[in-house]
Design a binder for these strands. Structure first.
Length: 288
DNA sequence: AAAGCGTGGAC
DNA sequence: TGTCCAAGCTT
């Protein structure tokens, strides 16, 4: 395999975006919160919410002391509100099991609620500077193209970690830069829709480009239709709860105009099952 | 292990 | 308009 690390590092030094979590001294808690928010939510939408969140809860212990409802409300419209619940839960676990300090060990991180293979290694690498492969959707796309000559990556797999490990340099500081650079290249150059191969630092060693950028098909699952879905109903119910000035809404008055009554009730039940809502005395509210 | 889970922007 | 996409996770 050609050396990918060297051109990636050089490219990153000149082209990395100035993002909050890359500033010196941002801290493990800030990195952890940013990674939660970045799970499936675009960078530009995360930044203002991240800063507000860290101002309100500067440490895990601060968040752990808040009610889950406050976390869900502060999460606002970032999407996938279970992440707010999980982040709150992780903060409690960090307070109770790690003396309020974000753990550095990957297995300890993996044991926290809402943290998987990507987030655990992202924190260990970007917050603590340790040497691990960090693999997100950008990385998987870059490796799929450069190494496998495919236009899109297949479904996530443990093999992805080994593929990334294989291109990491030995030095942990440089390895961290290679991790960040690969993600950054996927986010800004080697993009899903319209790749900008003309400014890519890997053109002379990219299997996909060499093959003439074939469309090899997309093995990923397609997202289900959102309009009219149960997910949309859940979103509407939860927004109503977030916006409720009284913090508790009579069940009959929760999105009363929703076109499908059964679907609305299904949404309420599933939100309760997920711990995102509570029904008390005929009222619905966020979890206290 | 495949499905389910929000939201908004781009085209 | 509909479709795709976005630093994934849990069950």
């Amino acid at each position: 395999m050609p050396d990918l690390a060297a051109p990636l590092v050089e490219w990153y030094r000149a082209n990395a975006r100035d993002l909050p979590w890359r500033r010196a001294g941002f801290g493990p808690w800030g990195v952890l919160v940013s990674e939660f928010m970045l799970q499936q939510t675009p960078v530009n939408r995360v930044i203002p919410h991240l800063e507000a969140w860290l101002t309100r809860w500067p440490t895990p212990t601060d968040l752990a002391a808040a009610a889950p409802a406050d976390a869900v409300r502060q999460w606002a419209n970032l999407g996938y509100p279970r992440r707010a619940l999980w982040l709150h839960r992780a903060a409690v676990e960090i307070r109770d099991r790690h003396d309020g300090v974000v753990p550095r060990d990957v297995d300890a991180l993996l044991a926290l609620t809402g943290i998987g293979d990507y987030t655990a290694r992202a924190v260990a690498v970007f917050a603590y500077g340790d040497r691990h492969p960090v693999v997100d959707t950008n990385t998987r796309r870059v490796l799929a193209r450069v190494i496998d000559g495919r236009s899109q990556p297949g479904p996530p797999s443990r093999r992805d970690l080994r593929a990334m490990e294989a291109i990491l340099p030995v030095d942990r500081t440089t390895a961290a830069v290679v991790n960040a650079a690969t993600m950054e290249l996927g986010a800004t150059v080697c993009t899903a829709r319209v790749p900008r191969c003309e400014v890519c630092p890997l053109t002379d060693r990219c299997a996909w480009l060499a093959a003439g950028r074939p469309d090899t098909g997309d093995e990923r699952r397609k997202q289900a239709r959102y309009e009219g879905s149960d997910r949309q109903a859940r979103g509407a119910v939860l927004k109503a709860l977030r916006d409720a000035a009284t913090h508790a809404v009579p069940l009959a008055e929760v999105v009363p105009d929703w076109p499908d009554r059964l679907q609305r009730d299904r949404a309420i039940d599933s939100l309760i099952a997920d711990g995102l809502a509570e029904a008390v005395d005929g009222l619905l509210r966020l979890p206290v």
